[in-house]
Simulated assay, not measured.
Amino acid sequence: MDTYKTNTPAATTPETNAATGVLSQFGTLWRPGSSWDNGVATSAAAQRILDSNIAQAARTTQTRTDAQGHEAYLIDRRNQSYSAIAGFGDLSDAVRTATNAGTTIPDEIPADATTKQYADQGNAKGAWADTDSELGDVVQLVNTLRGDYSSASNAKKYYQYPRPYRQSQDVKVLPQLVPEKSPTPATDGGFPSGHTNAGYLASLAFAYAYPEKYTELLTNGSEIGNSRIVAGMHSPLDVMGGRVLATALAAAVLNDPANTQLEQQAHQQAEKVLAAAGPSAVDRYADYAADKKNYRKRLTYGFARTGAKTTPATVPKGAEALLRTRLPYLSDAQIREVLRTTALPSGYPLL
């Protein structure tokens, strides 16, 4: 919370880099080696968890539907902030218009995508959205949460956990994403998922600005993360790590006094603009029960509770910032109690 700005390439260990450190539980499962291909599990029990992790990734890629693959391609190729807008549900069209959001990745996958790389060029200005738009403060809040100290790359470099398709031939990368496979695995680790980190950061920024869609936005954030497993690019633990990292970074950025004015402006702006917007898009997240089921499943991806099961829940410093606009009628202490009493039980891998 106080040291998130240590997340720079110069800080290379969990002790010196706050982002790498917040993921340090992964170190109880995986010990990085001297290169990308010689890390090892920390124990036989850890090996079983890591084997299960890759096996689940393989099953997901072997059973994905065409529709799931299509969505995974779009999420891979589009800016994650643009993809996060879908979490506004029936207001997503209004948000795209009010932010001047844009993408050059079409809804229909190009026929030659199996052999050609496509990079998102954004809107007419080359950005995912504009800071001088009707929702410009909201765009800037997203950009701030995804700012200079919010990268997953430094943690990737430290943990050197290979992507699942490099660990097992049973993991089938989506054919249209084969051109995106990096030729340099030494600089292309799997843990944590960078797309997941970015997608959740954008989703949390949007949710802070417009908490009326908090549930839907976080559900969409989980869809962005899960698509990385569907694509064959990441494993469940990679995605869980990306979510953990983004949640911690979002809380840190929202607690930074330098961002207080922007946060207030973005919230006020979103409330004003979207109050006048009419729902026009299809709401992908109108089924609350289904959304809740999927979201909760993706918190743990079905891993068994192999660790201590009686550790009391503790709320990280500053976590209340994540829910201040969603629960404005509660004090910080009360929000922390909400977080404590709704926490997962202890014992899950990585968490």
Rank of each mutant, 00 (worst) to 15 (best):
L204G: 07
G69K: 08
N38C: 14
Y159S: 13
T12L: 14
Q269E: 15
L74S: 00
T247S: 03
Q176H: 07
T342L: 11
Y149C: 03
D291S: 14
G147D: 02
T215Y: 13
V253H: 02
K157D: 09
A44N: 11
T300P: 12
V171G: 02
T60E: 02
P257I: 02
L330Y: 04
T63K: 08
A246M: 04
D287Y: 06
K293F: 07
G147N: 03
D120Y: 06
T16P: 11
A321K: 05
A10R: 08
Q47K: 10
V173C: 11
Y329M: 12
T20Y: 04
A270P: 04
D76I: 06
A308G: 10
N79T: 12
Q264T: 08
K297E: 13
H234S: 07
A129K: 00
A155K: 11
A55W: 09
Y329C: 05
Q265R: 12
R48C: 03
N79P: 07
D238T: 03
T103L: 09
A304W: 08
F303S: 06
P345R: 04
A124L: 10
R166D: 03
S203H: 08
G189L: 02
V138E: 01
G194P: 12
D170R: 04
D238A: 02
L141T: 12
S83H: 06
P349E: 09
R228N: 05
T247W: 01
Q176K: 03
S81Y: 14
A289L: 12
D76Y: 11
P328Y: 04
A209D: 01
R31Q: 15
K272L: 09
S331N: 12
I229H: 06
D283A: 00
Q265A: 15
E320Q: 07
G27D: 10
T8C: 03
S92T: 01
